[in-house]
Design a protein around this nucleic acid. Structure first.
Lengths: 212, 212
DNA sequence: AAAATTAATGAACAGTGTTAACTTTTTCAA
DNA sequence: TTGAAAAAGTTAACACTGTTCATTAATTTT
């Protein structure tokens, strides 16, 4: 019986173990397959126990959502040291794409899926989106720094930042959803679609560079 | 009893009626709420009857997916008449965004959701994506025409087209998923997010224009 | 009219999120 | 140490989901 053992094994921070089980299921089997009952089986508890630690499924999914943003911010850490604003902007874009490529499930959860967004629309109001805010603020500041160096002349900082985000997000979203792959299979006959993202990104960088 | 009546009312093209019921549910209540049982109730038939006309739920969803692409291509029809390639490219972008704004559910189905994409990965192989192909081919040709007029010098047609698509898709995806709204609420304090898309699009057009 | 084919259905399987009522375990004061 | 209060966990159930199989009803053909 595993019932006796698991009481000896740290029964504290059960909340954390629920989240880890959810993450494991989410990364190996996807969002749909991450059910309350499977999480419960994973941690050897009754399904209803989970509701003592998380309000509902959205609550668990949102916890993973937040974890994703912490991971992303951590991967952006080295960019702080990049002196040149424009080099920093380019590196930010590359880093963002790299995150989506290495953690496609997290990327989808953070920037594509509606569920976590609807959750924080309903429940918590203020403390919610602050991780995402910090990431966007960093982009905003970098664009401002670029403008100080003569880039993006006559353009609004917010609009430039939004366009940059949308462009890179568009590439990542088409990649993680499989639309890029399907499209390229039909139009170009099965090419390397990761390479295509790199090429499209180079075109974007070319545009940005030309504003100086 | 409605059972007697519906036999008198056209019992032919039941396949079409299933699709219309599915569309109605999809547009009013969303993808998740579009269940086989609800479709069945809508057309006053047993749930199992639906399986005599469609392979499974994905099959129905993919039929809507195709319908969306026909709608989109129809909305692109007037663009054929635009003489100037660059004006046509700009109009294409505006038209694309307009489609996403007026048919957000269809846009999500066509360009965001994984389900229809996974469906045609498994089942049909050739005839599948041809509607989407036509749309992208039109973009490719328009970019080529722009290059003949001196735009996008030294850049690869495919890469320019892909970057343009990704940029505009990024804006639309962030809009329909609600991420733009949430982000702007926190960062800029609840501004008009439809206006923001327009502004970001203007920045993109500025970049494209600068290549001449 | 009887047989064969087609169309439609009812019941069931294996899942899902979630809640209410109940039981077990732990805590803590008398 | 015992007994009550509080906390933790579980069982059973509700209302759904997609999907399949065996069976019935309707239609067509012989």
């Amino acid at each position: 019986m595993g019932i006796q053992e698991r009481k000896i094994r740290h029964k504290e921070d059960l909340r954390k173990r629920i989240l880890e089980a959810a993450k494991k299921l989410f990364l190996t089997a996807g969002y749909e397959a991450t059910s309350i009952r499977k999480i419960a089986k994973e941690i050897e508890f009754s399904p209803t126990t989970i509701y003592l630690y998380y309000k509902d499924k959205s609550d668990i999914i949102y916890a993973l959502h937040q974890e994703g943003f912490q991971m992303m911010r951590q991967s952006f850490q080295p960019l702080m040291q990049v002196e040149s604003p424009f080099e920093r902007l380019k590196a930010l874009g590359k880093c963002y794409i790299n995150f989506a490529f290495t953690h496609p499930d997290f990327y989808e959860l953070m920037f594509v899926m509606k569920d976590p967004m609807e959750y924080l629309e309903i429940s918590c109001v203020e403390t919610s989106w602050e991780e995402g805010e910090r990431v966007f603020d960093f982009l905003l500041q970098t664009v401002r720094d670029c403008q100080d160096k003569g880039y993006f002349n006559g353009l609004d900082t917010k609009h430039v930042a939004m366009e940059a985000w949308a462009s890179v997000h568009g590439m990542c979203a088409l990649y993680v959803s499989g639309h890029l792959k399907s499209m390229m299979k039909v139009v170009f006959g099965d090419e390397n679609h990761e390479r295509m993202i790199e090429d499209a990104f180079r075109v974007l960088v070319h545009y940005l560079e030309s504003t100086k």
